[in-house]
Design a protein around this nucleic acid. Structure first.
Lengths: 336, 336
DNA sequence: ATGAAAGCGCTAACAA
DNA sequence: TTGTTAGCGCTTTCAT
């Protein structure tokens, strides 16, 4: 037996395929209740499911959305995916999740693939700012897209952003309030905008307390645990600080390790503050103080925005506010 | 300007659409190199991308695969996704990742959605055994599917599995060799097959050393950190053991917390061994000893199998072997 | 209230 | 070597 099509239903119910199509799409007008019921019964009986591909071909709406994330292994992104997926499903869209693995060529590849697959829109959580090729591709293909957090600020494209500057500021303020004066910071990659913002917000807070972050106390990381571990270990071996701000939680984990291996007690000898509040960090001992972003909700909002763009050509920039979550890895210090 | 179609290319190149279709699909025969080049030039010039939906409609191949995971927040699954995605892309398929959130109705929903979306096959990492409805749905829709780890053993459906029994055995053997005699185990949900296997393998190892795991030392968890934390805390308050086997790493994290709060030193007073070897556990202090599964490779293999099933109606059951990774959370004990 | 027919963008016989 | 044509499963005018 072959796949059941609309024709089969029509024949079985003794009506035209137009009529079947009407009930499929809940067209109210022009149809007796009797007919509708009859068709519905047949559909039910044979467990018919319309071919979305065929529908898409004529309606020019695939009901599919694409989501490109830079690194699915960072628990930050699964949270984003969850939010995005839930919102998409609520609106009857399906989501194709793609992991660009921090590689530009993969990102380009996915962009092409998603377009071929005729997705109705794309949520782009790019590693970096949008490359010129990609921007052009997207713009000229006229496919609606939304930017998630990363990406430039000057540009006025719609998207969901975090106030990274404020996040960094909160982190700095917290450490200052705890009395810290010797502080280091491990940043994300240099070319990444949100990472820079976190740093500058952080510096801003320090400066307000008349403290300048020395060049050597700014370590350039890459948002990954291993790198942060190596950087921190090397740094802590030959420098004395009482606090470290890691620009994401994964890197904070690396600092924990480094401190542990060097016999440095957290938070007694070293306070650590992270960024993101990924789910797993509650497993760290002591529990990590961090700057929280509501990733799940940001994912939902981003997709909501995307669908709004698709269906009503809306356009908006939403900025989320991060919050400070004080746990156990930061501590008041009496400076000598 | 509207979307560019094959017609536009044909007109522009002065050939028929059939010819264009031929070069698109790399049909070698019957066509002068001249013509091919000409068409290729036009395609290049206008940056034409064929509509995959239209192709699918006639070829009956959507080049899309579905992957349903039970809990994307468990870092185990992003690893699986990465492997699956890479393998799919290598074969020119795209992957729709769905998170069923441990909810049966979501899983059913996704199954329906994936079918409507005409995916060529499904990789199902079901929370539980396949529900009867789902099994029937899948079977009668004739859509190729592969089972990932969870799910029944008796059934002979193709899939990728882990030798969970062996994993449990390795864990038990390790603890025994370290001299532990008072041991507890935190399992996954009772109805989940792989969880049961881990336990029975574990028991097997103990029994070999003439040790029987008392009922009260088997704590039924749910693969989640929080639950394991609560169970472990309650348990450790009133029982004395020298080692705990957590049936996945997330739960081991929960045990860490509990031990920490009770002032129990790991591994001096309590050895802990986990299961999975998820990426983040290297952040735990001390580093977690665990039973490793090669999740990424399992994901790749599963998709390879699925594609093989789709393209050559192959069918196979692959079983991966877990390995013991000794780190710092287990320690030799001199029993008194 | 219902149906016939055209067409979405493409592939695949079959002709020429 | 190339083109004509039918049709994939559906929606949507336009008739009736």
């Amino acid at each position: 037996m072959d796949k059941i099509t609309i024709k089969d239903i029509a024949r079985e119910a003794g009506v035209s395929i137009t009529t079947v199509s009407r009930v499929l799409n809940n067209k109210e007008e022009g149809m007796s209740n009797e007919t509708r019921e009859k068709v519905l019964r047949v559909i039910e009986k044979v467990n018919y499911q319309p071919n979305q591909l065929a529908r898409s071909l004529v309606t020019k709406r695939s009901k599919m959305l694409g989501l490109i994330v830079p690194n699915i292994s960072n628990p930050f992104f699964p949270e984003l995916c969850r939010g995005a997926e839930d919102e998409a499903n609520d609106h009857n869209y399906s989501l194709i999740i793609c992991n660009s693995d921090d590689q530009l060529h993969k990102e380009e590849n996915y962009l092409r693939l998603l377009k071929e697959q005729q997705v109705d829109g794309i949520l782009l959580s790019s590693k970096d700012q949008l490359s010129e090729t990609n921007r052009m591709q997207l713009q000229e293909s006229k496919i609606p897209f939304i930017i998630f957090d990363r990406g430039e600020e000057g540009n006025q494209h719609s998207g969901v952003f975090l106030d990274n500057e404020k996040g960094g500021y909160l982190a700095g303020q917290h450490l200052i309030e705890l009395g810290h004066r010797q502080i280091a910071c491990i940043t994300g990659p240099e070319n990444i905008h949100n990472s820079q913002k976190r740093l500058s917000g952080f510096q801003h807070a320090l400066r307000k307390a008349s403290l300048e972050l020395p060049e050597e106390f700014i370590l350039t990381g890459d948002f990954k645990m291993d790198t942060a571990y190596r950087l921190a270990k090397q740094f802590l071996e030959s420098n004395h600080v009482t606090a470290i701000f890691a620009c994401n939680d994964l890197m904070a984990c690396g600092v924990y390790q480094a401190a542990h291996e060097l016999g440095i007690q957290i938070p007694e000898q070293l306070s650590i503050i992270g960024f993101d509040d990924i789910p797993l960090i509650t497993a760290l001992i002591p529990k990590l103080t961090t700057i929280r972003q509501n990733t799940y909700e940001m994912g939902r909002k981003a997709i909501a925005l995307l669908i709004d763009t698709i269906e009503h050509e809306a356009s908006e920039r939403v900025v989320f506010e991060p919050t400070l979550v004080v746990r156990e890895s930061t501590k008041y210090i009496n400076r000598d």
